[in-house]
């Protein structure tokens, strides 16, 4: 029933698709992390001129589908003549750049909210202690607030990483031959959907749980101080209601 020959034959294509997916994910994740740290600081700032625009940005991005954002950038921007005639046009004509931009902007919005949430959970005493020691605002952020907020955000950030990984499948809609596009091509050539999409499902499954595993390891390393001290203290056993 399953066509193993087809799977073996298309494995190299999947392998290439996997690399494209992973590269796309890596550049999106690094860009969005770098952008979201300053944005999260602005988001929790008491100054409304800083906090409100960031809120607006995350609200709009989180309230609209990623596919529509991608279409707006890749297909939409061609509408503007001034852009077509500008020096930036070769970039916006490129599907890779557009996918990267759309995914990075999207993930930045979510990551900003995650980090801002973690910053708000900072115990007030830590901040007071830092201020009473005369640390400047910049070094309070660098030394006290950000390191602990990033640690606290780790479990949710892990979810966000998985979301970005899954979101890269949407790049298949704008001609980028990543994993999902590879599967669609294999399907169109063979008309064997179970093999084509089943195979790619295996790939995504393995990547997802590798990511989850890495985040678990990081949590074990960076959130060690939050683990129960003795082995006896475990979350209460789940019982049927």
């Amino acid at each position: 029933m399953i066509d193993w020959a087809l799977i073996a034959e298309s494995l190299p294509a999947y392998w290439k698709g996997l690399q494209v997916s992973l590269i796309l994910m890596a550049i999106c994740v690094s860009a969005s992390f770098l952008l979201s740290v300053p944005l999260a600081i602005a988001r929790v700032s008491p100054n409304p001129w800083l906090a409100k625009p960031v809120f607006l940005y995350t609200y709009v991005i989180r309230g609209t589908p990623l596919l529509v954002q991608l279409y707006m950038i890749y297909f939409g921007l061609a509408q503007f003549e001034w852009l077509r005639e500008s020096a930036a046009w070769p970039l916006f004509r490129n599907a890779w750049f557009c996918a990267w931009l759309a995914f990075a902007l999207n993930s930045t919005a979510y990551t900003t909210e995650i980090l801002a949430g973690a910053l708000r959970q900072t115990p007030n005493g830590e901040l007071e202690a830092a201020r009473s020691l005369g640390l400047s605002t910049a070094s309070i952020y660098r030394r006290i607030l950000l390191p602990s907020a990033i640690r606290r955000a780790l479990p949710q950030y892990g979810n966000e990483l998985v979301m970005v990984m899954h979101a890269t499948s949407i790049a298949s809609a704008v001609t980028i031959v990543e994993l999902t596009r590879t599967a669609r091509d294999v399907y169109y050539n063979s008309l064997a959907p179970l093999e084509a999409f089943g195979m790619v499902a295996v790939f995504y499954f393995v990547i997802t749980f590798t990511l989850v595993g890495i985040v678990k390891l990081l949590e074990g390393r960076f959130l060690k101080h939050l683990r129960p001290k003795s082995a006896d203290i475990r979350p209460t056993e789940m019982t049927p209601a």
Binding site: M165, H166, A167, T168, S169, I170, S172, T180, A183, R184, Y187, P193, L194, F197, G198, V200, A201, Y204, F205, T208
Partner: peptide, 9 residues
């Protein structure tokens, strides 16, 4: 799994 892949599958 990504939603799109499940959808296609």
């Amino acid at each position: 799994l990504p939603e799109l892949v499940l959808l296609l599958l």
